[in-house]
Amino acid sequence: MKLLLGLVLGAAFGAVLQLSGASSHTKITNALRLRDLAIIKLILAAIGAGLIGVHLLDAAGLANMQVKDLYLPGVAIAGLIFGVGFAVTGYCPGTALAAAAEGKVDAWFTVVGGLFGAVIFAFLYPELEAGLLSVGRFGPVTLHRALGISGALMAVPLGLLCLWLAARLPEKGGLS
């Protein structure tokens, strides 16, 4: 039952990615070039809805939260590395799978490249863990707990701000 739920939720996610153009190399690279902001608006809307929905669930005691650990500078460097790959392929690990299924042959190569990148990381992990990943460990910290306020109190206004920003951003970027 849980397996089927995973498949259905994943399929819904994949279908939305496909139908909204998030799996398109053109849409992603033009978003990163700040020429076509539709994907930025989409991400802001997703985060806005997520912030409000997840934290209202959490306030009702119904959310299964899972916050990732913060380690600095490791997470910051990881984001820099990820961004380079994102711009070069025009896909992220999820949208590459969606694009691959649409017949985008280059996305297959991104997926296979990703499998290699992941396995190389796995074998370098013991050294990274002892080095870069061992410094600046803060655990699963969140903004609202650091400020000592309830999650919903912070997430609802921030979520509304994200939704407002998503609506206000022009679809065509200024830099073209």
Partner: peptide, 28 residues
């Protein structure tokens, strides 16, 4: 690019889905 992407994602413990969508929604 895919190699760099997944190396970075595993290094940081997540990707666009796990970090950006799920993580930011939790205020992580």
């Amino acid at each position: 690019g895919g190699f760099i992407l997944l190396f970075g994602a595993r290094f940081g413990g997540g990707c666009t889905s796990g970090h950006m969508i799920s993580g930011l929604s939790q205020l992580a």
